[in-house]
Design a protein around this nucleic acid. Structure first.
Lengths: 157, 157
DNA sequence: ATAATTCGCACCGAATTGCTGCGCTTTCCC
DNA sequence: GGGAAAGCGCAGCAATTCGGTGCGAATTAT
């Protein structure tokens, strides 16, 4: 199914919240109080974001989280990749699967499907956290589905 | 997770196969023999496609399926919507959920997330079965994420 | 009749998802 | 120093979804 998980949804809520108070240390509890987000799960998500280096965490009494980078430089793609694992359109397109997918040779939709995946991914890569907050147009894609199929050059590395 | 289900994958394989022999009646068994697709499940998928009017089915001895429309007029979006149900980026964006999603008012990422969904959807809507088969560029998106957020005007109706 | 097909359920096992519990560590404040 | 506040790590649980199958009925060419 084409959808994002709750983890990503919560993560985005938190990130946007952090972005609004850039610099300030915000606790998971505070965020959990403002939105109907199970704070326990939110903490889990924040932890993952911290692992990925998107947020900094401060422990201890008045601890909490801050954005580790400006909102403009955080792409939706990064968040999704971090919170949901490697994205793929079908299982056999997942690079780490390493199973050459027996169809491979015959499968007539493999590479096209790859292009779709690239397009979706490109969409997310080009969407920054900042633009998610802006009211205006987010991004203008063009030529996102090129024959090369490599619309999303680098993901995480 | 951002991915298509096996159902869609199998459906696309079948549709492409049907498109290649446009006009000819092709049985589920034949398709199942060419690709490592459980023919039982394939039949299930084909049935759904028939329900949605994308393919015609002929019963009886030399029965099978044919494309119900030219490959150019079948969009990837239609197939996905038909095989995976209403697409949504998060649960609360699903129209039929009807739960107004308590955050709604406060949720800072609802509408942006909606735009993402629209963008992805738009991508699929603009990708025809035919273009999936062509080797060239598939589609050139531009302005897919407009502030209006309604990048995908009509879905199924 | 018989064989080849699709059709319509219903069902099962496995994986994923959303969520919670419990205890530990770190840090601030008194 | 002691307590409270906060993050960290791991493990587990319930519900849903997904991939796949079984079985029989209906339909049609030979």
């Amino acid at each position: 199914m084409i959808k994002l998980t709750k983890r990503t949804e919560y993560g985005l809520i938190a990130l946007v919240h952090l972005a609004e108070r850039q610099g300030q240390v915000v606790s998971a509890r505070e965020i959990g109080e403002q939105y109907p987000v199970p704070r326990r799960l939110l903490a889990e998500v924040l932890k993952d974001l911290q692992h990925g280096g998107l947020v900094n965490s401060t422990r201890g009494a008045h601890g909490g989280y801050t954005l580790a980078a400006p909102a403009e430089s955080i792409s939706l793609g990064k968040v999704v990749a971090m919170l949901e694992g490697a994205p793929s359109v079908t299982d056999c397109t997942a690079p780490e699967t390493a199973q050459p997918c027996e169809v491979h040779a015959t499968c007539p939709i493999r590479s096209p499907l790859d292009r779709i995946r690239g397009g979706i991914w490109n969409l997310m890569e080009q969407t920054s956290l900042q633009s998610l907050m802006d009211p205006g147009p987010v991004v203008s894609l063009r030529g996102s589905l090129t024959p090369s199929g490599k619309a999303a050059p680098e993901l995480e590395s």
